[in-house]
Design a protein around this nucleic acid. Structure first.
Length: 422
RNA sequence: GUGGCUAUAGUUUAGUGGUAAAACUGCGGUUUGUGGUACCGCUAUCGAGAGUUCGAUUCUCUCUAGCCACCCCA
């Protein structure tokens, strides 16, 4: 049970702002799909044999006995929407982005929740390497704007045929080393050979070192594509590490795959912030026209976690929502006047805090202090009579009496905000 | 999905087979128009359920949740 609390709003809000700005700059359009989809969308999209589909999906029957799943990720759903709405009739490439909750019935841990949020970008209709590079750039810029240093791990897993050949070779190789392997890996040989490369058992590590590398099994075209992606990353000065063991847990990927990590040392093992890659066959597999595509997703809870750790180490803080002024009142009549004044101040964008159920000035000053409001406006019986208000500078304690009509202008000036027109 | 650890006020932690202590925070107050200090007061069916026992928060079991490792990924 992971609640996103008000105290973390200072993380969530900048993330939303950053991502929606980036989407605009890179010309991605927002898409939203339902949380519930017919289960086949994900089974076909993500693939049987993946942990996500086999073990982690929330699946149940609705009243029509239709089997529905709570989405464990968005790409399959976006592809479904792309096909359903005939997006290939729009100018290509079609660039889409999303933000929303995902659901996986995993064993919870820090940075790993059963409901979590992802943002993601999908680009349909082009197999150009620049598309892959642009997606990585978007991710990289996202973290740059938030001030979190990251690096990219990248690999190419080739086309289906290339991977099949490679898999054969890999399986042959691992069969010959069978006696050295852990139980899990022996099963992987038949169940999901690509994951063999992920194993962290020491025995398997040594076997892995000698294992055939996929890069040597790529055809000229795939190799060329991968090289071009890397060239673009060089041009964009995005730091990356080649990782020939990177395979990803979703079946739909072809050619480029990548994951994003903080360069900051993180506690706990949930350090992958995001990942993605190219999925040139998925649209066709799900019943659409052959359409090359690539995408990327970032897990926001993990970004928050990484930012918190990073900020703590570097003595950095996310800016909080500030209070510009506290408005204190004394007496029934003053409250009426205050209500009006608060509304005027808000109207010009001054962020006001107040509390009508606090009646003593002392209490209200305390609150103003707690909120770190730079100014307190005080309106009591006397001020109501004179049509004035007191502005107290909380830092210096200096008070100034101003006419209520001038309050807005004076306070704006004190806050360093000026009218454009004058 | 596997193995392990933990579970006492909002938070961080004491503690005991006879129903619980402190710090910080919060709220209220220290004579009702002025904050940041000080002092006082308030706030816990001791995660849930069952069992052992004269009696359990303290022992046992089950469940739930959190965390750690694995797994996997975000």
């Amino acid at each position: 049970m992971h609640d996103i609390l008000p105290k973390d709003e200072k993380y969530w809000k900048p993330m939303y702002k950053t991502i929606s700005d980036l989407a605009e700059h890179f010309q991605f359009s927002r898409i939203e799909t339902p949380i519930l989809e017919e289960v086949g969308v994900f089974v076909r999209g993500i693939g049987k044999g993946t942990d996500v589909v086999d073990k982690e999906m929330y699946v149940f029957e609705d009243k029509d006995t239709t089997k529905v799943a709570m989405r464990p990720e968005m790409t399959a759903a976006v592809v479904r929407a792309y096909i359903m709405h005939g997006f290939w009739n729009m100018p290509q490439p079609t660039k889409l982005w999303y933000w929303g909750p995902m659901f996986r019935h995993d064993r919870p841990q820090a940075g790993r929740y059963r409901q979590f949020h992802q943002i993601g970008f999908e680009n349909f209709g082009s197999n150009d390497p620049s598309v892959d590079a642009e997606l990585i750039l978007v991710a990289f810029d996202f973290f740059k704007d938030l001030g979190l240093p990251v690096e990219i791990k990248i690999n190419s897993i080739g086309t289906l045929a290339e991977r099949a050949n490679y898999k054969n070779e890999l399986v042959n190789y691992y069969r010959s080393k069978r006696s050295y392997l852990c139980e899990e890996c022996r099963q992987r040989i038949t169940k999901n050979p690509m994951r063999l490369l992920d194993c962290k058992e020491t025995g398997c590590q040594t076997v892995k070192e000698e294992a055939p590398q996929i890069i040597n099994w790529l055809g000229a075209e795939s190799k060329n594509h991968f090289m071009k992606v890397l060239e673009y990353l060089d041009v964009l000065e995005i730091p990356y590490q080649l990782d020939h063991t990177l395979v990803r847990g979703l079946n739909y990927y072809t050619n480029t795959v990548f994951e994003i990590y903080t360069t900051d040392e993180q506690e706990g093992s949930q350090s992958a912030l995001g990942g993605g890659g190219r999925y040139d066959l998925l649209v066709e597999e799900m019943g659409g026209r052959p359409t090359p595509a690539a995408g990327l997703a970032i897990g926001l809870e993990r970004v928050v976690l990484a930012l918190k750790q990073y900020n703590e180490k570097n003595n950095r803080e996310m800016p909080k929502v500030p209070t510009d002024a506290y408005v204190a009142q004394l007496g029934e009549e003053a409250r009426r006047v205050t209500m009006k004044i608060i509304n005027q101040l808000r109207g010009v964008g001054i962020k006001i805090a107040f509390n009508f159920f606090k009646t003593s000035l002392k209490n209200q000053m305390e609150l103003a202090d707690g909120l770190k409001a730079p100014f307190t406006v005080i309106i009591g019986q006397k001020e109501v009579q004179d049509s004035t208000a007191i502005i107290r500078d909380m830092e210096s304690g200096i008070q100034e009496i101003v006419d209520q009509k001038k309050l807005v202008t004076v306070l704006k000036r004190k806050l360093g905000r000026f009218d454009d027109k004058r």
